[in-house]
């Protein structure tokens, strides 16, 4: 009976591994990365997953094995064993080395994504983005390429960007915190009132995708939904001109 009970502890590793196999087969996985650095970021998910899977399986199996092997109904008394310097130093040093390596290694991508000094020099300023309860407002520099001039094009919840070129937005918020989240592009940045934060990415595929608010911003947080349209630079220019004309016509 004791044997059976101790084996039940296998349920955790077996169940977890089962879920790990079931999930991707049923669409529970990272969405395909659609930005130039998306694949680099995903590389770290997979790297961490390799590390965690090994550590998880080793520890869980050791736990189950110990509970099974050293049951109270096995003969003899427990051993008064409580120290092993070699073992202690080994696993402290091993985890420290692996984790320090991981921590330092991943910083390269972090810098590329977030450090303004490392943004691509040719990143095109596409729009100023302002979060407010509960919508996204976009202001595109018009023909003169400058923001806050008479030819600015303004939209609500509609972001258009050209494909294949690095783009930059200036992120702001006018009332509370919001967060600019493009799941497919691995872009996430909080929008903070009083601060203007530059964000860049390079889209690699055309299409229409969700823009999501990822920071609690009030009762309507869940419906603060925008849309990003990635299209060829020519189409992007054509859309900008058309929107400008519509804006002038209704002025």
């Amino acid at each position: 009976m004791n044997k059976l009970w101790s084996l039940l502890f296998l349920a955790v590793p077996v169940g977890s591994v089962g879920l790990f196999i079931w999930a991707p087969a049923n669409g529970h996985w990272w969405p395909k990365p659609l930005s130039s650095y998306g694949a680099d970021i995903d590389y770290f998910y997979y790297l961490i997953t390799v590390i965690t899977t090994i550590m998880f399986l080793v520890t869980e199996l050791l736990l189950t094995w110990a509970v099974f092997k050293y049951r109270s109904d096995t003969p003899g008394r427990a051993s008064h064993w409580h120290d092993n310097k070699k073992l202690e130093i080994t696993w402290t040093a091993a985890t420290a080395l692996i984790l320090l390596w991981l921590g330092v290694y991943q910083i390269g991508i972090w810098k590329d994504v977030k450090f303004p000094g490392r943004f691509p020099k040719d990143a095109q300023l596409v729009a100023e983005v302002t979060g407010r309860q509960f919508e996204w407002r976009f202001r595109y520099p018009g023909a003169d390429g400058k923001l806050h001039t008479v030819d600015d094009v303004q939209t609500v919840n509609e972001l258009h960007v050209p494909v294949g070129v690095p783009v930059k937005i200036l992120l702001k918020a006018q009332d509370v915190l919001h967060s600019f989240f493009l799941p497919n592009f691995r872009v996430k940045q909080d929008a903070v009132p009083g601060v203007e934060i530059p964000v860049w990415w390079k889209s690699t595929e055309e299409g229409v995708f969700d823009l999501v608010c990822a920071e609690l911003c009030g009762w309507g947080h869940y419906k603060m939904k925008g849309r990003i349209t990635v299209e060829s630079p020519e189409k992007f220019q054509a859309w900008l001109t058309k929107t400008w004309q519509e804006q002038e016509a209704t002025r």
Binding site: W30, I41, F44, Y45, I48, I51, T52, L99, L102, G103, Q106, I107, I109, W110, V113, K114, S179, P183, R186, V187, K188, A214, E215
Partner: peptide, 14 residues
């Protein structure tokens, strides 16, 4: 580990 490494927290945050 996924959340402590800044790079992967980019996606998982919140």
């Amino acid at each position: 580990l996924y959340l402590g490494t800044a790079t992967s927290d980019l996606y998982f945050h919140d």
